[in-house]
Amino acid sequence: MNRKKNRLTDARRLALTDADIAHLRLAIESSARDDHPALPPAYWRHRLKRLVNEGDLLPKQRKKIDELLERLDAGPFEDGA
């Protein structure tokens, strides 16, 4: 029984991580289009790196995070961070 509960917990955690990544992608894309984004790229980098540091990610999730980090590095905005 505990094994099944742990799997459900893991599945829920992975689903929440997917949702977080999707939210961050939308926010980063919106910020990149805005001349004066409400939050700087450093904030989004911090959020992405926190996801990486929080625990086990699926390779697909890690790839999406890496792509978002590359997007932040590509600009067009710069924050000096």
Rank of each mutant, 00 (worst) to 15 (best):
K64Q: 13
A32N: 01
R25H: 04
R13W: 05
L16C: 01
R33D: 09
D79E: 12
H23A: 13
G75S: 12
L26P: 02
D34F: 10
A22P: 04
P40D: 01
S31N: 08
G55P: 06
R12G: 04
S30L: 07
A22W: 05
L14G: 05
L51K: 12
I28G: 03
R50L: 14
I65L: 02
E70I: 11
H36L: 13
H23R: 09
I28E: 02
I28Y: 04
L69K: 06
A27C: 07
G80V: 11
R33H: 01
I28L: 07
A27W: 01
K60G: 10
K63F: 12
T9C: 03
T9V: 04
P76G: 10
R13E: 08
K4S: 00
V52E: 15
Q61Y: 11
T17C: 04
R33M: 03
L51S: 10
Q61I: 06
P41L: 03
D73P: 03
S31T: 12
D10S: 03
L24I: 02
L14C: 15
A15V: 00
V52G: 00
R3V: 00
G75N: 00
L48T: 01
K63E: 15
L26A: 15
N6S: 06
K4A: 04
P37H: 09
A11G: 10
K63S: 11
A15H: 14
H36M: 10
L68I: 08
L14M: 13
P40Q: 05
L57A: 06
T17Y: 05
R47G: 04
L26R: 03
W44H: 14
G80A: 14
R25V: 00
V52N: 14
T9A: 06
L24Q: 11
A74I: 09
A38C: 06
F77W: 07
K60C: 12
E70Q: 13
R7Y: 12
F77K: 02
L48E: 13
L68G: 00
K63L: 10
E29N: 14
K4G: 04
R12A: 07
A32S: 15
L14A: 13
A81W: 15
D56G: 08
D18A: 14
A38S: 15
A32Y: 07
R25N: 02
H23T: 10
I21D: 10
R7F: 08
L48I: 00
R47A: 11
A27D: 11
S31D: 08
